[in-house]
């Protein structure tokens, strides 16, 4: 089987995002990156497929250099190759520009049988990158995939739709986003690999390595633009009440009435 490519994203650690009240932009300095939690099931699926079909797993990420430790961690999980797509020109990319860079990098890694991604990131949260990348590559995409296996050279995918579960047959290569609920067990890194990875560095690719059209990158290549971000005001400063259950319930009912949930 041709190789499997997994795309992962470094996302700010929850709690570390702040809005600059003056400029209405996100303060990104001092942001600590973590692996997008929804990418773990995608990696787990890739590594299970690797065991079953004895194929290679290549992990790529577009992002700043502080994604490197995340990629090294993924190497310790069992990936065969780790690649960082990093260039100042990528800054400010929306999903179209991101998908363009990923599609170009994936193309360069051809032939491949499968590209796996997380369902959505926990920062941008659009869930658009997987189908959009597939569209740019001109190959089929499936979202919310729970299970994937090969039968007579074709992928059989189980995916969750709003109306039920579908079993789909499709010829490789495809892009699939993996359901966050796909696995009960997700492997930890192996000790041996954790030691090995100390000396392992990801391959770093820049614009010049990928034959990219500069017009389609970063802010310039991003038709959607965030013009303002603001924090939603919190209605009251958290009121903490102690007392007897009777007193507390009385207060609760008062609030529920105030919110129009109980009418009397």
């Amino acid at each position: 089987m041709e190789k499997i490519i997994v795309c992962i994203k470094g996302v700010p650690k929850p709690g570390s995002i702040k809005v600059d009240p003056e400029t209405h932009t996100l303060k990104r300095e001092n942001m600590e990156l973590i692996l997008n939690p929804n990418d773990r099931p995608a990696l787990e699926m890739a590594l299970r497929l690797k065991n079953t079909y004895n194929t290679e797993v290549v992990v790529i990420s577009m992002g700043p250099p502080n994604v490197i430790p995340l990629l090294k961690y993924i190497y310790a999980l069992g990936a065969d190759q780790i690649i960082l797509l990093s260039d100042r020109a990528f800054a400010g990319s929306d999903t179209l520009a991101t998908s363009y860079v990923l599609a170009k990098a994936i193309e360069k890694l051809s032939p491949f049988s499968l590209v796996l991604m997380g369902l959505k990131s926990i920062d941008g949260e659009t869930a658009q990158v997987p189908p959009e990348t597939a569209s740019l590559l001109g190959i089929p995409s499936l979202t919310n995939v729970k299970d994937l296996f090969m039968e007579r050279g074709k992928w059989i995918a189980i995916r969750e739709m709003d109306y039920g579960e579908e079993e789909i047959e499709v010829t490789p290569p495809i892009v699939a986003s993996v359901s966050p609920l796909a696995f009960d067990y997700i492997r930890p890194p192996s000790l041996k690999r954790l030691l090995e990875v100390k000396t392992k560095e990801p391959l770093i690719c820049q614009v010049k390595d990928l034959n990219l059209d500069p017009q389609r990158l970063g802010l310039q290549g991003s038709p959607t633009q965030v013009i303002e971000v603001f924090e939603k005001k919190i209605e009251t400063k958290g009121l903490v009440l102690e007392g007897s259950p009777e007193e507390l319930v009385e207060k609760l009912i008062e609030i529920l009435k105030d919110k129009g949930l109980i009418k009397f």
Partner: peptide, 23 residues
Amino acid sequence: ATKIGMSLAPRVAGALQVGLCAH
């Protein structure tokens, strides 16, 4: 933003090379 909408809209936007805002 149903499961179908979220699978379909990004493919259409990608094919047209236009922006797509989510949710």
